[in-house]
Structures are given as structure tokens and as C-alpha cells.
Amino acid sequence: MNNQDPLAQLKDIHLPETGGWWPPAPGWWLLAALCLIALIALVWFGKRHRKRTLWKRQAKAELERLRQRACNEPKWYGELNRLLKRVARQRHADRHPESMTGAQWVDFLLETLPKDRIASRPTAEALVAAAWQPKSALEPRNALAFASLWLEAQL
């Protein structure tokens, strides 16, 4: 071996050390920012949706509560009518259903009912009148069936 040979003095090739995992490349920062923005937007839209549909969940819960304590008393029929009016006010605010009474309220209920309008007229009339009569001819289960049908169409 010749000490004068410059090629003999060279050392083997060594690869540089890896950069490690921190700090990430700019593309990863951008991806993390986009994921964070998407998560914030998802939470915001979820809360907004829950807030906008709160009245629907409350109406279903109120109907179930009325179903559990169904009785043939004017107070109970009045509560059922108030529930229907609250839902009508949410769905049809432009028609001002909260101010409707008697035949006008019955007509409104039947107009917004999707099916069986003619067959449901006696039930709707009896439901509206039951809040003022000491004993109603309408059975609570029939009133609940009509209210459930009407609420399903509105919710």
C-alpha cells in the first residue's frame, strides 16, 4: 500500500443521520391545521343542529309523557292541544296557529295532516272540543293516535 496514494486515505461512505420526527415537515403542519378546522366545524354544526331540533325532541318527550298519564279529563286534552299548538307555531309560524281556536284550529290541523283528512275530521273536532267539555266522547287513545299522526307529519 502506498502512503502517497490519496485514494487509499479515503474512508468508507457514511450516510448522514436522519432528521428525526420532530419538527414535522410543513405539509404535516398544514394537514394538522386542516384537521383541527374540520373538527371545530363539525362540533359547531353538530351543536347548531341539536339546538335547532331541540323542540322536536321536547315535543316527542311531551307526547310520551301525555301518553303515560292519559285520562278523559278536559285538562289532559288541553295539554295535548297546547302541545300541538307549540309544534304548529314552530313549523308554521307564518300562519300564526297559536291564535287559532275552534273550527279554524280544526281546519288547520286537517290541512297540515298528510293523509286521512276526511276520516280524521271527527277526531280532530272532538279533540279540540274536549278541552272545554266536562266529559269527552273522544277516547284518549284515539286522541293520542291523531296527535301522533299529526306530529309525525310535522317533525
Rank of each mutant, 00 (worst) to 15 (best):
P26T: 02
R50G: 00
W21G: 15
A25F: 06
L39F: 12
F45A: 10
L36I: 09
G19D: 13
G27M: 08
R52S: 02
L31F: 05
P24C: 01
L30G: 02
H49K: 12
P23W: 07
A33Q: 01
R50N: 11
L42M: 06
W22D: 13
W44T: 14
R48Y: 00
I40M: 09
G20E: 01
K47V: 08
F45E: 15
W44L: 04
C35V: 11
P23H: 07
C35H: 06
R48P: 02
T18M: 11
C35P: 02
A33Y: 00
A38W: 00
L39G: 15
W28N: 03
A41S: 11
V43A: 14
W28I: 08
P26L: 04
A38V: 06
L36G: 11
R50S: 12
P26W: 07
G46T: 13
H49R: 12
R52Y: 02
L42G: 12
P26F: 00
L34Q: 09
R50V: 07
L42A: 10
R52I: 04
A32V: 10
A41E: 09
A38K: 03
A25C: 06
L39P: 04
I37A: 14
V43F: 03
L34I: 07
T18F: 07
G46M: 13
H49D: 11
I40D: 04
A41K: 02
G27R: 00
P24L: 06
R50Y: 02
T18S: 14
K47G: 03
W29T: 03
W29Q: 08
T53E: 03
L31D: 03
A32H: 05
W28A: 14
V43C: 05
G19K: 15
K47F: 05
R52E: 10
W21D: 15
A38N: 00
T18L: 09
K47T: 05
I40L: 05
W29E: 13
R52F: 01
P23C: 05
G46R: 12
W21P: 02
C35K: 00
E17Q: 10
P23M: 11
L36D: 06
G46E: 11
W28S: 11
G46L: 07
L34R: 12
C35Q: 08
I40C: 01
W21H: 14
W22N: 13
H49G: 01
E17I: 10
C35E: 04
W22S: 11
T53C: 04
L30H: 05
A38S: 10
L39Q: 08
W44K: 10
L36N: 09
P24R: 04
L30T: 05
W28P: 01
W28T: 07
G46P: 01
P23N: 13
A41V: 09
W44Q: 14
A32M: 07
I40W: 04
